[in-house]
Write a protein that binds this DNA or RNA. Structure first.
Lengths: 231, 231
DNA sequence: GTTCGTCAAGAGCAGTGCTCTCGTTTCTGG
DNA sequence: CCAGAAACGAGAGCACTGCTCTTGACGAAC
């Protein structure tokens, strides 16, 4: 199983990649709804039916675009966070947040594909799960490291976590081993605030309300960092 | 200008309403992308071109659906919040949050149309603005009333608001007169957390992570209430 | 050298938004 | 009351979509 088995397989892989590239470009300019298999084929000088040799349906093409998108976003978040000193937990958190926001602003349509309303008639297959967790894994790691270093002292806020949630947190505890339940829930809240902000900003709900959005986002994320006890 | 000017105008208004009703039903079952003018016409026993006498384009029909949706959501939030005693500020806040979430869960496709990615390429006419502010107005009123009653004592969290944001808050200060700038920003963060949660939950990002979502949402909103100083 | 699988191409189906024309119905001004 | 104007439903048609099926050609394996 070398990288180049036969000439046929090589050209097939190359064409598949070209289709995805053109599709991503069309996605970036036209949006998810404007992605057309026929237009992709036209741009490649192929006939539409030929594309179906490589992707059995439009949704399959969309799925690989989604997975690529999650990976691109996750990688952007990872890179932004990795640029900060390991013991600067607040800086790592803020860098990750800005990394996500910057990527979303640079790729609005791809972000909409990931975190916007699901595409009509399209059900996200399980294949997307691993790629989808890359960004939240980064955010979790920051908090976990802070807890391990004893650098997270969350202030008392509101009631203690309900019992059902403590039992519920099994899945999240896997990524955030050692983090107290209350803090896991605050991380979840911070996560919703972050993606809520990005979505509202990107989808135009913040127009005529906030002008200096980057500063406001920064302040908002600092507030959530304080809620989690990061300094 | 009586309610029934001519027979023609009456049947026109009636048919317009019927078109919108059918369209909303199709929206609820098929989603925004599945809304088809031809299907609406078919269900009405009309021919597709006849519908264009009432709505000049599919996007215009979508726009009225959006406005209707904002009003329905705003009304649901208003009703939920109004059911609480006026001096129970935490209760009013939580009721408004749950009102929004309950409505979203009951009308997922309509919610996606309002707070999801803009579907048909681009569309956000100014007509939607007044209806869009109904829910956020309710949330703002709770905080403003609490401040007026001296019942909001936000804990110290993070740095003070940057100067540019203080100058930026003109628009929001109109709805939240008397609320300190720092608290306005925390309200904004709480708002993003609330809609972020609802969106992430509705769009499936919370699957396999949280089972008892209502309780978790409640806890999250209580945390944000504490951030705003509501007890 | 023949066979077999892969491939691009083309025609075609059912559906979409939207435009235009053509009679008919309804309203309105004289 | 009646003619002209405006509104209306029906139908045909355009350009587009995702997708299927068949046909013929090419390359690789036996």
């Amino acid at each position: 199983m070398t990288a180049s088995r036969t000439a046929r397989e090589r050209v097939r892989a190359e064409l598949s990649r070209e289709i995805v590239d053109i599709a991503r470009r069309q996605l970036a300019t036209e949006g998810a709804g404007g992605l057309s298999l026929r237009a992709v084929a036209r741009e490649m000088g192929m006939v539409s039916s030929a594309v179906y040799r490589y992707f059995p349906s439009r949704d399959d093409l969309l799925t690989t675009l989604i997975i690529d998108g999650y990976n691109a976003l996750g990688e952007a978040v990872e890179r932004a966070e990795a640029a900060r000193p390991r013991d600067d937990f607040l800086g790592r958190w803020l860098a990750a947040c800005h990394g996500a926001r910057d990527w979303a602003l640079a790729h609005p349509h791809e972000y909409a594909l990931l975190y916007g309303s699901p595409v009509p008639g399209y059900e996200a297959p399980q294949d997307t799960v691993p790629a989808r967790l890359r960004d939240v894994t980064v955010l979790s790691a920051v908090l976990r490291d802070a807890v391990e270093a004893g650098a997270a002292d969350p202030p008392p806020l509101g009631p203690p976590p309900p019992a059902t949630l403590v039992a519920d947190g099994e899945n999240m505890r896997a990524i955030m081993a050692g983090v107290p339940d209350e803090l896991i829930l605050r991380a979840l809240t911070s996560w919703t605030a972050m993606y809520g902000w990005i979505s509202l900003e990107l989808f135009g709900q913040l127009n005529n309300a906030i002008e200096d959005r980057r500063t406001a986002f920064d302040h908002s994320m600092r507030t959530m960092a304080a809620v989690m006890g990061l300094h």
